[in-house]
């Protein structure tokens, strides 16, 4: 059941990595299903994105991934796209609420990085 409210508490690393992976897919628009249009990402693609440094460097196993996706669907952050090239593969995409949650989290992290930089904990000009 979707709750319909943007999460205000910091997201878990798994949830953040999943949202980031799905958002990245939308931006690049790569047709991950092989059906010629953006239809979301399937489980292993999300795991692979999350493992990459730019995806958060989170090592997700299938259990953690699908457990997180199950709760995120109930919270209304992601949904199944309904598009599939293989019945064993399920494809997921962000909802509007998922976009908002990711934006809130990125702003929170950005503010933390800016604060660390102003305190001299992070050199100016370094990647954030």
């Amino acid at each position: 059941m979707a709750t319909g409210t943007t999460p205000t508490a910091p997201l878990t690393s798994a949830v953040f990595a999943i949202l980031l992976s799905l958002a990245e897919g939308e931006k690049t628009g790569s047709p991950s299903t092989g059906l010629g249009r953006w239809g979301g990402k399937h489980g292993y693609l999300i795991m692979k994105d999350a493992r990459a440094p730019e995806g958060g460097g989170v090592r997700l196993g299938p259990g953690t991934l699908y457990g997180s996706l199950d709760r995120m669907m109930r919270d209304g952050l992601v949904e199944e796209s309904g598009v599939s090239d293989d019945e064993r593969r399920r494809y997921y995409r962000l909802t509007n609420l998922g976009h908002s949650a990711l934006a809130v989290e990125l702003e929170r992290l950005d503010a933390a990085v800016a604060s660390a930089r102003s305190l001299g904990l992070l050199p100016h000009g370094s990647r954030s």
Binding site: G43, Y44, G63, D86, R88, R89
Partner: peptide, 10 residues
């Protein structure tokens, strides 16, 4: 089935 497929992909 999806978890098994993800493991297979990995």
């Amino acid at each position: 089935p999806s978890m098994r497929q993800a493991f297979r992909d990995a």
